[in-house]
């Protein structure tokens, strides 16, 4: 078993077009490290020095990980992680 990671359209260039890929890890941080080893370049689109990028939403099952533990959120086999770029903008 592994953790399913759902990839948004704009990041599928890193996954050979796949909508979902498998990864492993005990925390979200480890999971993203494992993703990076399989799909180089993906990590930089998800995190920066300070943690998760501000305009990327990452969900563990049905919860935004910002309301859980951010990058230290525990993950387990059978979980689903969903990545969605925030829809944002404005005149400012």
């Amino acid at each position: 078993m592994a953790i399913e990671v759902r990839i948004p359209t704009i990041l599928r260039t890193y996954t050979g077009g796949a909508k979902a890929v498998d990864a492993t890890g005990v925390t979200l941080d480890e999971l993203i490290g494992d993703l990076e080893s399989r799909h180089p370049g993906l990590k930089d689109r998800l995190v920066d020095g300070a943690g998760l990028r501000r305009f990327v939403n990452v969900y563990l099952n049905d919860e935004d990980v910002r309301f859980l533990g951010g990058l230290s959120t525990p993950v387990a086999d059978g979980d689903t992680v969903t990545v969605l770029p925030a829809v944002a903008g404005g005149a400012r």
Binding site: N57, T82, A88, G90
Partner: peptide
């Protein structure tokens, strides 16, 4: 954001809608 100069979808609403 409820702002006259910026918008951002609420993350949980966006998750449900997507």
């Amino acid at each position: 954001e409820r702002s006259p100069t910026f918008y951002r979808f609420d993350s949980m609403e966006q998750f449900r809608v997507w």
